[in-house]
């Protein structure tokens, strides 16, 4: 038997599921986005640290915590990988589609996990902007 559940997912998804990047929390994060609901089986929290350099605001650090399936954990991990080092304008290019592409695809029933990741990012940035204004 060479096939197992993991063959439902791409190698990249399994790699991020088995060895998630940037897992955990940040002390005094600049922004946080919590999306989903344990009742629905997915809960994601993204925390970001934003710094200013040469007039640009960029993500210095990103951490996540996720309650969810393999796809939910892998998308959160991939998201943090994709945003670290980027400035806020570049982040606009990141969507659920680009996350799915970076993971070499997700099964159709798991597409919603990538939407959740995108929502977490949007929410975390909005939280940061709100804090800056205050």
């Amino acid at each position: 038997m060479s096939k197992n559940i993991s063959s439902l997912y791409s190698k990249k998804v399994m790699e991020h599921f088995s060895h998630p990047r940037n897992m955990g929390t940040i002390k005094n994060p600049s922004g946080r986005g919590r999306v989903g609901n344990p009742v629905c089986g997915d809960l994601m929290e993204l925390q970001i640290k934003v710094e200013k350099k040469a007039g640009k605001e960029y993500i210095k650090e990103a951490k996540f915590q996720t309650f969810g399936c393999g796809a939910a954990i892998a998308t959160s991990s991939m998201l943090t990988d994709m945003i670290v080092g980027k400035d806020l304008k570049e982040l606009k290019k990141i969507s659920n589609q680009t996350i799915v592409e970076s993971l070499d695809g997700l099964p159709p029933v798991k597409q919603h996990c990538s939407v959740l990741a995108e929502e977490a990012l949007v929410k975390a940035i909005a939280d940061y902007k709100k804090k800056v204004k205050q």
Partner: peptide
């Protein structure tokens, strides 16, 4: 605090 599919996987 954990989800079933990720346990199965």
């Amino acid at each position: 605090y954990v989800e079933g599919e990720s346990i199965l996987l």
